[in-house]
Nucleic acid binder design. Sequence first.
DNA 1: ATAGGGTTAG
Length: 616
Amino acid sequence: MSTEKLSQILKEAVSSNRTSLTNQKTAAKISTILIKSGIKPFKTNPSLLSNLDSNVTSLVLSNPNLPLHSCTLFFNFLKTNLSLTSQKPSLKTHITIILRLYKAGKFKEIKEVLKFIIFDDNLRYPVEEMISLVGFECNDSNFLEKFCDLYFRVCVDNKMFEEANGVFGYMEKMGFKIDERSCIMYLIALKKCDKGDSILGVFRRMVESGVEVSVYSMTIAIDGLCNRGEVEKGRELMNEMVNKGVKANVITYNTILNAYIKRKDFGVVTEVLRLMEKENVEYNAATYTILIEYLGIVGKHEDVEKLFDEMRERRVEMDVHLYTSMISWHCRRGNIKRAVSLFDDLTEKGLVPNAHVYGALIDGLCKTDQMEAAQMMVNDMQSQGIDVNQVVFNTLLHGYCRKGMMDDALSLLAAMEKKGLQPDVFTYNTIASGMSKLKRHEDAKRWLFMMVEKGVTPNAVNFTTLIDIHCKEGNFVEAKRLFQQMETRGERPDTITHNALIDGYTKKGKLKDAYKLRDEMEAKGRIPDVYTYTSLVHGECIFGKVDEAMRLFNEMHQRGLVPNVVTYTAIISGLSKEGRSDEAFRLYNEMINVGHMPDQRVYSSLVGSLHTVRGQ
DNA sequence: ATAGGGTTAG
């Protein structure tokens, strides 16, 4: 079928190339007018074009005496004044103008024409036919090669990957040189469209077809593998490419390093760093950013500032990304002072703060109960001409909600909507959980329902919040129903979802249900965390089974879970209630030693323990 | 042209 169609186009092309004398005369007449007085005569007197057809148009457009700008003016005039001519400019006309643009080196303009062609139902043809036709109009192979490259790029830019493959295949077949930069655009587009799975295949095809691949495309291919969790394959590819003369650079290593860290494969981190050293690949700001995150995860807190100093010593150029992760790291550790000083440092260095840095610092201020300061930063940000975006609004909103300042939260929401920003899953969840914390369960649910009514699709977090509310109300039937509904909706309950239910069960004395769910989650591969255990410890303590609680507490250590302040508080008060004051004090000391600040509850428990007779 | 940063639930 395809060849039939092709032969028809070619037949038409051949016949139209046998131009008649009258056509030539008409074309010459039009050209003369265009050269002398431009496009105006045709606007005022459209009848000048009464004998115009596709062949005449092509003759006009390929007239070398007609300057290019007159050609494009005429071409655009015909396209925007369809009623003047019997038919829309044909594919042939488009190809003629492409050829003229090519001779003038106007590649950007060619891409625009091509884009128009591939989106027009009447002009679009299958890849092979399209190129054949172009080849027929002009068989200069340099032109055809460049045309294919541009065609390929336009397909890529417009996410028409099948067509892109077609053009690529044609170029392979013809032995054309395929530009790596065009292929990179292809790889990037695949990544952006969540088609990362195809990246490796395209890269391999590039190598096979003799595209001169560089570290750029290799890194993108490795990144594609890393994003699929196949870091090892990425490293294999890296080793394989060395033989082909492509060496990894700092970005390649950063990609691999980051993938290992995201996968919590910490053992390999030092190995990769050693490899970088061996290969004389110097760290850059991104490497440090990745390493800071790593140190935060593995808890090597004292090394973060050391790393920062090392950067300074090595004179590695700092950038806003690096500062953002430093600031956010200090904020998470509660060291808002250092975060603020880093922010000053950044501006002093002449770096321009962006919404991300502001966002990090504003969040830090919100979490240390400095809403006025946070608001000031927002104002500062605005005065710097940076738009307060959805994230910053949500951050501030969360600041108000966590303090129970719901009126401020709601007026902020109004301000946000006034700016044309639609509340999203974060916004609704933050308000609902704020309401829930104040035990305004009905309000909390209403906000989540409102979200659905507004057409915002709830995610796993929203479901978890709602489940948590029902658990707090003791409505386990509804909580369970939502739990199941989540799964059917494709939002898999995670550890936190399970924790919400487990916590609900333990607080209502349903320890059996709690343990059952804990086992179920483990069976599903969801690993219980500190919160899971804390709920269970707390539950056992409430009902006087302190030995059980201690057993769980020790089990935590075995599983590498670090008890937090809530866990300690629960177990200390459990022991205290039973009068086991020695054990309670021992854990109190342990808690202080690991750096947790005890609150009033711990003290009153401990004091109470001294007045309680053991075993009563 | 390839890498790294800010927000939500217990």
